[in-house]
């Protein structure tokens, strides 16, 4: 039975190039200096996560963007606001979960990560936000083999 997509015709954006990163002086500078985390770096971690429904990355679907990432390195805080493609997107929580898992693997444990949907971008905004930021719920979700499978698939493209 054909399953209908929520959003059969998403808008695709261009992928921003990574070229500008190579110009940073710290790459050639002191190797021991701790590099501060910034939005660009966080964005690099999550931009290539594949959307669960379409074969495009979150960046290309404009679900995540660098502007919507807030990083406070000193305070060890990261805040991400992502925009699901559709108001009723039932994949919103899954996308949020993928982002969280990716950051869990990529960031040092000192960081507190808050993941929310962009205000006004989802019909059940409050419920989704609450679910994504409850660590027990997230941990329980990650014990569900089906969900873990789906998350791994989405993250496969991002691991390269």
């Amino acid at each position: 039975m054909a399953v209908e997509l929520i959003n059969p015709n998403p808008v695709i954006h261009e992928r921003k190039s990574k070229a500008h990163r190579l110009d940073l002086p710290s790459v050639h500078g002191d190797e021991d200096a701790a590099e501060e985390f910034d939005a660009t770096e966080i964005f690099d971690h999550i931009r290539d996560i594949t959307d669960p429904e379409h074969p495009y990355s979150l960046e290309q679907l404009n679900v995540v963007s660098e502007e919507a990432i807030m990083v406070d390195d000193k305070g060890s805080k990261v805040g991400i606001k992502f925009t699901p493609t559709v108001q009723h997107c039932s994949m919103a929580t899954l996308i949020g979960l993928c982002i969280r898992v990716k950051l869990l693997r990529s960031l040092p444990p000192r960081f507190k990560v808050d993941i929310n949907v962009a205000p006004g971008s989802h019909a059940s905004e409050a419920a989704v936000n609450k679910q994504l930021n409850d660590k027990e719920r997230v941990a329980a979700a990650l014990e569900n083999p089906h969900l873990v499978d789906m998350v791994e698939k989405c993250l496969a493209s991002s691991e390269q």
Binding site: V101, L104, R105, K135, E136, V138, A139, A140, L142, E143, P145, V148, E152, E159
Partner: peptide, 14 residues
């Protein structure tokens, strides 16, 4: 706390 990790390679141990 329900644990994460371990069941899937790549996830950090709980």
């Amino acid at each position: 706390r329900a644990s994460d990790g371990g069941s899937s390679p790549g996830l950090k141990p709980a």
